[in-house]
């Protein structure tokens, strides 16, 4: 009797392992962001710009418990005032000063991508700091007072690629579509990645502001806040060894998050050298309804 019980146990154990312990993944690739032409038809067409157009990405690393950060927000607003469409600002809430701290700062505005950018672009938990087109070289992490000079330098560079972007929000299916047009002006070698970011403005939430009276602002208007990336933090490789004259439209459909307000969102597309390398060019647009 005892032998039978042991045998039964081993048989049941063995069969259980056999039946449950294998995940045969038939389709391992996650079709992430594939454009739903079945729902939205062919991607839109783009007309080449015809002239080189260098635009600039300002990554503003910030946090609601960072009392000096609103000074950075003001400098960013001045740059948009000056350059309009040619400067894209994304406020990245990351690090210890962006962590939820109830009851004063109950919200969590951090994102995994923002945390990754703070780690890879700044490397330290300090703010306010900014990167301008992730330009390479020593000392390329700037305080707000230096942003204007750096943006002016970057925008004067000759671009190797022109970019345009169109984006729309599809309430019926809870989707947002993005179409990025790239037009290479020079030959280039290596891999180039496209990152699509979603930034939201007009978010009302607490912020610490040193020098302001009061320093604790319960209804601060947060602008250009990074809410998500459609393509992942490091982006998707869309060009390898492109030659001058190469053009391409990359189209994506992403799922919408109900916490975001479509009318307050803008899409920022950047082309980078490899993983988080120099930003070659930028394009931004409001979400079309």
């Amino acid at each position: 009797m005892k032998s039978n019980r042991i045998l039964l146990f081993l048989a049941v154990f063995g069969l259980s392992i056999l039946f449950v312990a294998c995940d045969d993944v038939e389709q391992p690739i996650v079709e992430y962001g594939v454009y739903r032409s079945d729902l939205y038809g062919s991607p839109p067409t783009f007309e080449p710009l015809g002239v080189p157009k260098q635009r600039v990405l300002l990554e503003d690393f910030t946090g609601h418990d960072c009392g000096n950060c609103p000074n950075g927000h003001l400098r960013a607003a001045e740059l948009i005032e000056t350059y309009g469409e040619d400067v894209a600002v994304v406020s990245i809430h990351a690090g210890s000063l962006a962590a939820p701290l109830p009851p004063d700062y109950p919200d969590d505005w951090t994102t995994p991508e923002g945390t990754y950018y703070l780690l890879t672009q700044v490397g330290q938990d300090i703010m306010p700091k900014g990167r301008i087109n992730r330009r390479p070289g020593a000392s390329t992490i700037f305080s707000p007072s230096a942003w204007a000079g750096q943006v002016a330098e970057a925008i004067a560079e000759q671009p190797s690629v022109n970019m345009q972007v169109k984006a729309d929000y599809q309430a019926t299916n809870n989707h947002w579509n993005v179409h990025v047009f790239s037009e290479w002006l020079q030959n280039a070698s290596g891999n180039y990645k496209l990152v699509v970011m979603l930034a939201e403005s007009g978010i009302v939430a607490p912020q610490l502001f040193y020098g302001n009276d009061p320093e604790y602002i319960a209804e601060y208007h947060h602008e250009h806040m990074l809410r998500a990336t459609g393509t992942g933090a490091t982006g998707l490789t869309v060009f390898t060894n492109p030659s001058a004259g190469t053009t391409d439209v990359d189209s994506y459909t992403f799922d919408w998050n109900g916490e975001w307000v479509p009318d307050s969102c803008e899409v920022i597309a950047i082309l980078t050298e490899g993983d988080n390398g120099r930003v070659l060019n930028v394009a931004k647009t409001k979400l079309a309804p």
Partner: peptide, 9 residues
């Protein structure tokens, strides 16, 4: 630049 599903078992 492609996302894959991991087999856990």
């Amino acid at each position: 630049s492609t996302v894959f599903t991991l087999p856990n078992n």
